[in-house]
Design a protein around this nucleic acid. Structure first.
Length: 111
RNA sequence: CGAGCGGACUGUGCAGUCGCGGCGUGCCUUUGAGCACGAUGAGGAAAGUCCGGGCAUCGUAGGGCAGGACGCCUGAUAACGUCAGGUAGGGGCGACUCUAAGGAAAGUGCAACAGAAAAUAACCGCCUCUUAUGAGGUAAGGGUGAAAAGGGGAGGUAAAAGCUCACCGACGGGACGGUAACGCCCCGUGCCGUGUAAACCCCGUCCGAUGCAAGUUUGGGUCGUGUUCAUGCGGGCUGCCCGUCCGAACACGGCUGUGAAUAACGCUUGAUCUUGCCGGUGACGGCAAGGGUAGAUAAAUGACUGCAUUCGACAGAACCCGGCUUAUAGGUCCGACUCGGUAA
RNA sequence: CGCGGGGUGGAGCAGCCAGGUAGCUCGUCGGGCUCAUAACCCGAAGGUCGCACGUUCGAAUCCUGCCCCCGCAA
């Protein structure tokens, strides 16, 4: 589910989601989503998160955390934006937990 | 044994489960942004973008000006601002190390404060002649300063002074050694003059511009290149000048739309890596054999478990190379390298 | 990937090209004026000149290498 074919790629699409999508928040992640035909996602990690090694790690963690939800939720375009943790600690389990919370709260999980 | 100097290397590994990128092969009454299997997949700095090239396009770089870079010598190299070996001058007891190290007699500028004076020297002095003083000689001594007109010694003198002498330094000439920088020796000149060129500058060498988002290909409509006629304006070609090229008809190219930093190519076999031999003090070069080595594009290497007692630093390719610079835990090795101590 | 600009007391800026004294405005502190506050007047404190190396007798200034911030083009 983390494969490339489920990625949201084009700048216009991302802009569309960013402008007209709904937002949901948790301690570690800001999530923007918009209904679509197929579930696709994009990861957005800014320069404030550190050097490229650090940013790449965060992206990996986010993708891995998102993968199990890919087929469970209603199809939509999703942007994942991590928040800056002051202690520099990020982990898959934390991201997965918060994603679960958000999807539950927004009632996106299909029965 | 202790302290150091120089150089080289490494940059977690193995096993299991899950997961990702492109590649190859196969599969299909789900031909797709599919599935399975296989081998493969970041660095010594991939970084900073500080230099030099390759490559590509524009062009024809022919000349001059402007601008920039470099600057002991010889070599290495595709090239360099890099590297190697040497010279000179600093630093260290030493192994060793550092140095943008041409020209101040082409010209211009600057040298605060102090000091008489910061560059056609003369304040206090010293000496001679005159006598409240003035004129002349002089640069040893004093004082100021970062720097004061070769150094300190002997002779010499009214007092002095390269005025004279030897030594050292400087400059000029010659011989010898060295490819050269330069070294060394001999002879001569009493030494007409400070520092600063990382101040302008002069001399020598070199430099076309733009950068893979360069650029190429595919497809519909409108304008451009080669050939033939015309030589004025304006425009393009490097910042400027000289110089040089363009407008209408036939075959081929630009602009615009689909069209979005699209798709494909460029895109990885290369000044390649490993090993051996040969040449060279060395940088490096030559030959032979072998290896097949990331090519993504909202952008791939991780998570968990076990073992190795502890696993850790800096850090992620984006056209590619050669360097430089900077970051870097822990560890390994080499040296007919140094100094000190101890023992034989 | 390619360029440009900047870093000086607490804040905003001069000084750098052309090297010797770091200055201005606001703020801060003390005093005065006022019944009191503001304004105003007088006085004072406060700066490793981003970091390091070099050139120079001497560096905020010149050279070289780094660090950080801001901006531009495709």
């Amino acid at each position: 589910m983390a494969k490339r074919c489920f990625r949201l790629k084009k700048g216009k699409e991302i802009e569309k989601v960013f402008k007209s999508g709904k937002r949901a928040f948790s301690q570690t992640i800001t999530l923007v989503y918009f209904p679509a035909k197929q579930t696709r996602y994009a990861v957005c990690v800014g320069k404030k998160h550190g050097k490229s090694v650090e940013r790449n790690r965060i992206k990996r963690y986010l993708r891995e955390a998102f993968a199990p939800f890919g087929k469970k939720i209603r199809p939509c375009s999703v942007l994942l934006i991590p928040k800056v943790q002051e202690d520099g600690h990020y982990s898959v389990s934390l991201f997965a937990r918060d994603l679960g919370k958000i999807f539950g709260k927004e009632k996106l999980i299909e029965s």
